[in-house]
Amino acid sequence: MNLQRTFSIVKLEMQRILTEPLTSVFTMLLVPVLILIFGLTMGNNYGWHETYSIFEIMVPGMLAYGSLLSIFDVAASVAGGRELGLQRRINTTPLTSAEYILGQLISYTIKPFIQLVLGLVTAIAVGYRPQNSAVGYLLAIVFVVLLTFCSVGLGLITANFSKSAGAAGGFAFIFIVPQQIFATFIPAEFMGAGTFKWIFPSIYTTEGLGWIFAGWSLTDPQLWMRLGILFAISIVIYVIGIFVYEKNKNK
């Protein structure tokens, strides 16, 4: 494992983002903009629950949704590289799959992290008041990073089935949309998904973030159980993603 190569991949992905402003706007500002719009229109709606406003479900869900967009980014990046013959060319250099995937993981963790910060700042600006300590916020970052792990894995799997960046972008939504609808910013119970929501990795991040921002004790076993399950799911999906990438990288 060599960091020069890994950071070169990170730099490359960052440059791709910067030189494609539309992608940047879509992936970085979507979450803060959605929080701004929904926060201003529905922030104080307590109609569905005695204690929580819509805001308190929506903000953690939106932040989890930001991580899900990495599925689209990774799938489009890998499939696009393959479409142009770049993936094959890179595979003839000493770059290893581990270095390449680590580079992708770092790149696509930076974006959800920025979204987390921008999203929280926006939410606070329109009236949301998360309550927890600095350690709580660190734990929130861990939840987001783990979901991003999982999303990178799903992105690699998606790229395997896609012949072009465009197709990969489309296929990515097969993984994004169900999680978005049943396990992020819309309460799963609203959608009648209370029982099967557990199959979606994003529910663990959504609930984890929700509880942290609601000021739950950080030693609460429910919180750690969700973190543990998310960790296990993410590792499994990430490993499957690496396996699929390795098998098909020269397609």
């Binding site: 060319r89 890179i90 003839t92």
Partner: peptide
């Protein structure tokens, strides 16, 4: 030991010419 110039000019279009060269230079440490 090797290097390959593929049939299609496989380069990163969003990078400059020099940016592409530097990227591949990094791949060879």
């Amino acid at each position: 030991l090797i290097s390959v110039c593929p049939q299609e000019p496989a380069v990163h279009k969003f990078l400059s010419g020099l940016g592409n060269i530097k990227f591949f230079g990094d791949m060879y440490l």
